[in-house]
Design a protein around this nucleic acid. Structure first.
Lengths: 409, 409
DNA sequence: CGTTTGTGGTCAAAGGTCAG
DNA sequence: TCTGACCTTTGACCACAAAC
């Protein structure tokens, strides 16, 4: 693209002697020969001369023999290497060609200024506008799945079933018939009539959110291929963290320390003496490690969907090595897309900050998962809180011996 | 001049790998990508990818997909705000400096001077912005500090002292006199004469690595300002993870399941019946959750230094809210710096993959921290393993009552 | 006060378009 | 179909100002 010294508009195309429009592929040449050369190379076209391979080539008859025209292009020095890789199509929406000008002798030197001379001053955008990307296909899937899960959470639907039934039955979230029938809010779940939470509310929402967790798990394609024992372990490992995440994110913001459930039950930093000390402590962890950071970062629903998936797909669960590998790969893929999404949304500076904070929350989630299981176990064992059979299956396995093993392993 | 070790790609455009002409909008880049980025922003252009939004972008085909090219510009960190927003026909803003040059100490990474103590940052961070700008040097500081720590680990030096003495005494790693005197390898610590590990070896290396942990902790400038109780909690929380990290990273690669200590003691996946079941299980976790991933990712020493700091600066420890905040900010700053380093080293695609895998390891570390404390407690309580007083202080606190509280809280 | 660095602008020369 | 006048995009190079 360095202007060749000494070129003037009077120069002629070295191929056909037409008026040259500049240097093309290293040679002063006209538009026609330039385009002809490029097309020939790009389409790898081969020509054959009908005569003696020495046809004359000039402006009037340059189209007569393509073989000899191309030969001439090469002879005068057109350089194949000056061709570039195909570019993206521009796709003109409409023909913006100027009104054909009458050709005159002097217009060629002065015409530029009329249209090009005073372009309006282009200024950068004042504010960053939304640049949402379609590149994050998986994120969109996760996000709409999250929407369905929330619809179901607000509904009345809550089946009684064993853990095995829950994990092996047909997925509901991806079933349009089911969702049409049940996926609308219950009148009781409209976040109205606030009242302080009671034991029965905790139970109700834990049961609901554990039910939702099993459906959420099944909504991952990879999940169906895992051995049953891995499914149980994965859901068990997420048994505390996912409900906590869901409860925090879906709570309307009624102050920094308040979590509201859809039926209006709420809790805050109030110490509840009737609950085991461990569960009170977990409540504070939930406020400090999840609610506050998520509000600080201002996690949006796409980011939430991704982070929830990252939290669920935890290779630290006690599953087979093959399942660990699959889960890790899935997790990394989501993490990468999440980063891309955040960069597009906020720009690199802010995105890297928010991304780091969000991803580093996963270590807090792990801590909660680990400690809470212990606390739940102790709560049940010593306080006789009375979990449902489903919850006991979820956390403790099918029999008491297994529990003992877990406690001391 | 600070040598640019590890920044081998600095002369290449991070977007397309063409020769970079300098930093543009915050990123080493070529003229083409620079101009492309500016034009896209100025003209508010939106592109659509014809494929899967993951087109490769390099010198030869960078024009093939403008969507993916622009996406990559953002990914590698091109900053929209670096475009000048002035309404004047020509407006210039302040240049964006990438490395503050005012600090003149630079012995950190020079070759032979490893015995010299690591200088800490001279001025404490007054604002988040200052932390960020200084953090360009932060990885270098962490990396050379790590070198000192390893020198001390290989030495003979191992004082007997209480936890309080350890945490409140003068930092040794940054003391050139001390490091000159003691920071050279012991003859016994040369990784020769392999032999299977014994109980006494475990004890010896745990004691060494706990000693090193306290010195490592003190090497953080923020650490000295924490209340004593927070210091204890922070070190306690890192009591398992940091030694495990150090042992894995510094072990020569003698196969996928083998960890070798400097004196030649090694362990592998062999079940050791004489050890408590919990500690055997932790050993497997160490191999699966730390050794294997670190070798898969091929963590280099700068990345290791950063990840170790991220692991140590864990806001999940039971410390005051103010300390949590300080630690989180420090952690996030290191994380951002680590990401930048990896992008410079590997390019965006590989870096994002490796970064995600590495950062997500922090949740495994949290799990280990949580479960291991429990296992250590049980090991001591039931198996009478016989930890030193120092270890007991580290893990269980000063008195038995505190232990009981922790167990059931 | 000169050098280095990173802005924005320029325009020759690439590639793409579509009536003829 | 192929052609080529016309159009858009690209990037090497330049001037300028701020930082060093």
């Amino acid at each position: 693209m360095v202007p060749k010294a000494g070129f003037s508009r009077e120069d002629l195309c070295l191929v056909c002697q037409d008026t040259a429009t500049g240097y093309h592929y290293g040679v002063p040449s006209c538009n026609g020969c330039k385009t002809f050369f490029r097309r020939t190379i790009m389409k790898r076209q081969k020509y054959i001369c009908q005569n003696e391979n020495n046809c004359p080539v000039d402006k009037s008859i340059r189209c007569a023999c393509r073989f000899c025209r191309f030969e001439k292009c090469l002879q005068v020095g057109m350089n194949k290497n000056a061709l570039q890789q195909s570019r993206e199509p521009i796709g003109y929406t409409k023909r913006t060609r100027r009104v054909p000008r009458k050709v005159s002798f002097d217009s060629s030197l002065s015409e530029e200024d009329s249209s090009v001379g005073t372009p309006e001053r282009i200024t950068p955008p004042e504010s960053p506008e939304e640049v949402y990307s379609l590149s994050d296909n998986y994120l969109k899937v996760l996000s709409s799945r999250e929407k369905c899960a929330n619809d179901l959470r607000l509904s009345e639907y809550l089946p009684k079933r064993s853990l095995k039934e829950a994990l092996c039955s047909k997925p509901l979230l991806s079933d349009p018939n089911f969702m049409n029938k049940h996926g609308y809010p219950s009148l009781r779940h409209t976040f109205s009539e606030l009242r302080f939470i009671q034991q029965s509310d905790y139970h109700y929402w834990h049961e609901r959110d554990w039910f939702l967790l099993t459906e959420y798990a099944k909504s991952f394609e990879i999940f169906q291929y895992f051995p049953y024992e891995d499914k149980v372990q994965l859901v068990r490992h997420a048994g505390i963290t996912i409900p906590v995440l869901v409860q925090c994110f879906n709570s309307p913001n009624m102050g920094p320390d308040t979590v509201v459930f859809p039926d209006g039950a709420y809790f805050d930093r109030t110490h509840e003496p009737s609950r085991p000390a461990g569960l009170n402590k977990k409540k504070y962890q939930m406020l400090d490690l999840v609610l506050k950071p998520m509000r600080d970062i201002q996690v949006d629903h796409v980011e939430f969907a991704a982070f929830k998936a990252i939290t669920f797909l935890n290779p630290d669960a006690e599953i087979s090595l093959e399942s660990k590998r699959i889960i890790t790969d899935e997790r990394v893929a989501i993490t990468k897309q999440l980063y891309s999404y955040m960069v597009r949304k906020d720009g690199i500076e802010i995105a890297l900050e928010r991304f780091s904070r969000l991803i580093l929350m996963s270590s807090s989630m792990s801590k909660m998962a680990c400690e809470s299981k212990e606390a739940v176990w102790i709560a049940d064992f010593f306080m006789n809180i009375g979990f449902s059979n489903f919850a006991k299956e979820l956390f403790f396995g099918e029999n008491e011996d297994e529990n003992e093993m877990k406690m001391w392993s």
